[in-house]
């Protein structure tokens, strides 16, 4: 680091020391900046709770429609339950996803985040995690009721929770890429859905087959493992891609 700063001949002495200090103290200030981002996003979510409820209500309504439409035959319902919950979850998550960067883009907060000393991919990752917590936890809390609607067995329900826990972060992370790319466009909601839904097909296949396996009391470890691997891969790559897309959208 000493070598680095001495090679910067363009710095005044004052800036040099400030810079060295800021790099030395990088960790605590980055951490507090990220904490501030999370705190702000939670506060904003709380102040927009009406808007936050909409995807959740959509999720519940889609799932209640199925028993009504298909007739009260418990066996049929059990057969399609995993697929119904997962399709409803993907659609409702996509509905809430454009909240992720829309307001920050419109009011210029995103510009300030890009220009902040904290690397943008970290800020973005914190925002996605906060968004996931705010949107998914209510969905998980309401899911026992929905499992009852669809006549799910205990093992099926547990598998559903596991697949949702592992799978929904993938939706948030990959979805954030789409939102970041289209944030500069007006009314990008349907476009984002059209771009993203094909990407979720593998996830949907593995998640629903895990639930199906569970209903037949077959081992599901491998399927959950594949979803977990997908999650780790997106977790490693998506933040950088989201950050880059946001910078491109500023142009």
């Amino acid at each position: 680091m000493a070598l680095d700063s001495s090679s910067n001949s363009h710095l005044t002495a004052k800036i040099k020391t400030a810079d060295t200090q800021s790099r030395a103290a990088a960790n605590p200030s980055v951490l507090s900046a990220l904490k501030a981002v999370a705190k702000r996003d939670f506060a904003l979510a709380y102040r927009q709770r009406a808007e936050l409820m909409q995807p959740l209500m959509f999720f519940i309504m889609v799932i209640t429609l199925f028993p009504l439409a298909m007739g009260p035959n418990p066996q049929t319902l059990q057969l399609v339950s995993g697929a119904v919950v997962w399709v409803a979850a993907i659609l409702s998550l996509l509905m809430g996803l454009d909240r992720l960067f829309r307001d920050d883009y419109a009011n210029g907060s995103l510009e300030q985040m890009i220009m902040s000393p904290t690397p943008l991919y970290m800020v973005v990752l914190v925002k996605v995690i906060t968004h996931w917590l705010v949107n998914i936890v209510p969905l998980l809390l309401i899911s026992p009721l929905l499992a009852l609607f669809l006549n799910m067995t205990n093992t099926m329900y547990l598998t559903l929770i596991f697949t949702l826990l592992l799978g929904t972060p993938i939706i948030s992370l990959v979805g954030a890429i789409g939102v970041a790319l289209t944030v500069g466009l007006q009314r990008s909601g349907v476009l984002v859905a059209l771009l993203l839904i094909p990407l979720f097909i593998p996830l949907l296949i593995f998640a629903t087959s895990a639930i199906e396996y569970a209903s037949m009391n077959l081992p599901i470890g491998a399927l959950l493992g594949i979803i977990g691997a997908m999650l780790l891969f997106t977790l490693a790559t998506a933040p950088a891609v989201i950050a880059y897309s946001l910078k491109v959208s500023q142009n």
Binding site: L44, Q48, D103
Partner: peptide, 14 residues
Amino acid sequence: IVYIGHKLGLSGLL
């Protein structure tokens, strides 16, 4: 840098 552009960088809800 302090940059103040057309967009103020402030959230209306806060």
